[in-house]
Each structure stands twice: as C-alpha cells, then as structure tokens.
Write a protein that binds this DNA or RNA. Sequence first.
DNA 1: GTATTTGCAAATGATTTGCAGTGCT
DNA 2: AGCACTGCAAATCATTTGCAAATAC
Lengths: 134, 134
Amino acid sequence: MKNYTLLQQHKLKATPQRLAIIELMEYHGHISIDDLYSSIRQIFSSISLATLYKNIHSMMGVNLIREVKVPGQKTHYEIEKERHAHILCTQCGELKDIEFDPQSFIQLVASQSAYKTEEVSVIISGICPKCQKK
Amino acid sequence: MKNYTLLQQHKLKATPQRLAIIELMEYHGHISIDDLYSSIRQIFSSISLATLYKNIHSMMGVNLIREVKVPGQKTHYEIEKERHAHILCTQCGELKDIEFDPQSFIQLVASQSAYKTEEVSVIISGICPKCQKK
DNA sequence: GTATTTGCAAATGATTTGCAGTGCT
DNA sequence: AGCACTGCAAATCATTTGCAAATAC
C-alpha cells in the first residue's frame, strides 16, 4: 500500500509493474537493468524491457528513482532515499552503499562556485576485504 | 614531445592519433566521444570511431585516461591528473571541474569500511549561475 | 622485420520509439 | 469513458570485433 501511495503522490498510475520495480529496488538497494529484468520476470513473466525503461524514466522524471553511473560498469538504478555514497570493488565488481552526509560538501561547493547545489554523487573505488585476501 | 614520452612511459606506441587524443583532452579537460571525434576529424579526416574507442581503452588500461560517467549524460573522458570533482548544471548540461582534495574522504572510508581505497569520483549537480538568472 | 595499430564494415549491446491493445482511476 | 500504460517489433544509438593494410620502433 505504501508504494501505491508513493506513486500516486507523484502523479503516476500505480500499475503492478511499477510496484514490482519499486519493491525490487528497495530490496536490492541498487540494481542494473539486467538484474532487475530477470528478477521481475519471475513475477511478471510477460514484462518487457521497454516497459522497464519507460517506467524507470517516468520515475526518474519525478525524482523517485536515481540513476547511478559507475565507471566501468553498467548503469544502476535506485530509489531516492537518504543520501549515501557508493563504493565499488575494482576486482570483484561488487557495489555497496556507505553512509555519507553531503552537507559539508554542499557548503564547500556553494562557497567556491555560484552554483545552486542539488545533488552530490560520490563513487569510491577500491578493493574490498575479500579480494584483498586473495 | 612531452606526450610522446608520456605514451612511451606507459608502453604504448606513440601514434599521431594518440597524440592528438591526448592534446584534445588536455585542452578540453573532459570530452565526450562525439566531441572528441568531431574535433579530431579536423586534423585526421580519416580517423575512425573504432580507433578512438580502442585508444581510449588502451590508455585507460594504463591509467592515462579516466572515464567520467555522469547521470543523464553521455560518458566523458579525461586525462588523469590532479584530483578534482565535477559539477553539472542540470539545466544547460555544462560540466565543469572544481577543486577537490579527496584525502579526507579516503580516510573516512578507510575507517568505516575495510576497503583499500583507490579512487574517489564526485559529481555534483545543481544549477549554474547563468541558468539561475533565467 | 615484427608486433601493434589503423580504418573499414559488420556485429553486438543498450536504449528508444511507434503502435495496437489493455488496464487504471 | 478516457488517457496512461503495456508489450511487441523495429529503429536508433553506442560500443566492440575481425580482418587486411599500414605504421611504429
């Protein structure tokens, strides 16, 4: 019901496909189109990639979903929620969230440039503990 | 001559195409494939997109060039140099560099996670002064 | 001289579009 | 009922690949 309302608040029709997209994104945190497609097909065997793309775009249009572009990786998508940064393991490719409050940044940028800051996207790359052991 | 040496140091053959790519990237700061292609064609009318992609990849392989992925934009490429962040105007699409020292970040991440940090990519979006006036 | 690189054309992969039919409100 | 949404197939756009000829060292 919560997601149903969420869609309505953004003036989007609450179709089962959209509800499933939101649920899967909430569950995964961030997800690529391919993973989203194969997960969602287990519920909606008939859903098409075109529908996924269209829905992701309409939800991006109302800032419900955000695009996460990572160097060397396919685009991921996630629900807009509390601010966080992403950390990517360059060996195994795992992408994780880490806590991050961009407030200090926004202030820094505001003082350095005359921009009106909206968003900060931070992607850190490194080697995760598991891969370091190998 | 400088770029010639630069390529050799990275064990890449110094072809005129590669030299031109480096020069254009140094001049532009960051550039999309399309812009790079049309600029470079003014010098090498015969250069192909395939060659651009191949060269960009070999130079990325030796960390001479970095990929910059920006939400809602095509991939850009730039020479690896002093660390900086990018700021994107969501109205006019202009992408600029701003100064940024990731040192404090790297420390923060190192303490929060067990990652061995290599790189930090920061993309800020907002509205540039010009567009604010409109 | 040899291994690498280039440019072409074709292949692949990702995303978008048009349209007829369906479903939300 | 009416407009937005879906799924399909086809179109477009981005990137990669195979290969013969050219070039760097």
